[in-house]
Nucleic acid binder design. Structure first.
Length: 215
DNA sequence: TAGGCCATCTGGTCCT
DNA sequence: AGGACCAGATGGCCTA
C-alpha cells in the first residue's frame, strides 16, 4: 500500500508550527501570487477582494458612527480579511496535523506492520474499530472460560458504557461492522500486501487471524 | 492513464 | 469577533 512511500512528508508532521507551504502566504500582494494553489483558492482570494458590495454599507457605517470606531478603508478591510483567512488556514492546517498525529498514534498501538506498509486513514479507523471489538471478545471468552458458563457482564469499554452493553452486540459472534460488511474496504490489506495479523496482546490466536478479519 | 489517497484552501455554520 | 469544525473543491503524488 503506502501511497506515499517516499512522498507526502506532510503526513509525518509532528510540529504544530511547521509550515510546509509557506509560499502560499505570499499572496499578501495579489491573489494571483498563489499560482501553485488551486483555482478555487485564487477564486476565493479574489472574491475576498471584491467584498460583495460592501462599499455602500461601509459608507453608511462611516456616516452613522462618527467618532470612536474609526472607519476602515477598503484597503484595510481587504488586508484584514486576508489576515483572517491566513490565520484560519493556519489553524485549519494545525487542526488537520493534530488529527493526523492522533491517527499516527492510533496506528502505533495497532498491531505492527511491515515498515513499508502504512494503513490509510480509513483503514486505520476500521481496523481499530474491529480490533477493539476482537479484543473485547477475547476478554469475554476468557472470562467465560474462567468463571463458567454464565456469561459475564461485558467489560465497560468507554464507548459501550452508555447502554450498559446491549446483549445484541455481545451475544453475536461477529462485530456489527463485520456482519454488515459495509465498512469493509473492497480490497483488504491482506490481499494487497500479503499481510498477516501479528500477535495480539490479548492472547488472540494470530495464526488463525488475518488482517481482513479486522478490516 | 485512471483511480486512490492525501494535503491544503475555502466558505459556511455554530459556539464562546 | 474569533475560533473550531465541517464539507467541497482542487491539485499533487503514487500505483496498478
Amino acid at each position: 500500500m503506502t501511497p506515499h512511500p517516499s512522498g507526502a512528508p506532510a503526513v509525518q508532521v509532528t510540529q504544530e508550527t511547521e509550515q510546509p507551504f509557506q509560499g502560499v502566504f505570499d499572496d499578501e500582494v495579489t491573489c494571483v501570487a498563489s499560482a501553485p494553489t488551486s483555482p478555487a483558492r485564487v477564486r476565493g482570494n479574489c472574491a475576498d477582494e471584491e467584498g460583495g458590495g460592501s462599499q455602500g454599507a461601509s459608507r453608511k457605517l462611516r456616516t452613522r458612527r462618527g467618532g470612536r470606531s474609526r472607519p476602515k478603508s477598503e484597503l484595510a478591510l481587504s488586508k484584514q480579511r486576508r489576515s483572517r483567512r491566513k490565520k484560519a488556514n493556519d489553524r485549519e492546517r494545525n487542526r488537520m496535523h493534530n488529527l493526523n498525529s492522533a491517527l499516527d498514534a492510533l496506528r502505533g498501538v495497532l498491531p505492527t506492520f511491515p515498515d513499508d506498509a502504512k494503513l490509510t486513514k480509513i483503514e486505520t479507523l476500521r481496523f481499530a474499530h474491529n480490533y477493539i471489538w476482537a479484543l473485547t471478545q477475547a476478554l469475554r471468552i476468557a472470562d467465560h472460560s474462567l468463571y463458567g458458563l454464565q456469561p459475564p457482564t461485558p467489560p465497560c469499554v468507554e464507548l459501550g458504557c452508555q447502554d450498559g452493553g446491549s446483549s445484541g452486540d455481545w451475544g453475536s459472534l461477529y462485530s456489527p461492522v463485520s456482519q454488515a460488511g459495509s465498512l469493509s474496504p473492497a480490497a483488504s490489506l491482506e490481499e494487497r500486501h500479503g499481510l498477516q495479523a501479528p500477535a495480539s496482546p490479548a492472547g488472540l490466536r494470530p495464526s488463525s487471524l488475518a488482517l481482513s478479519d479486522f478490516l
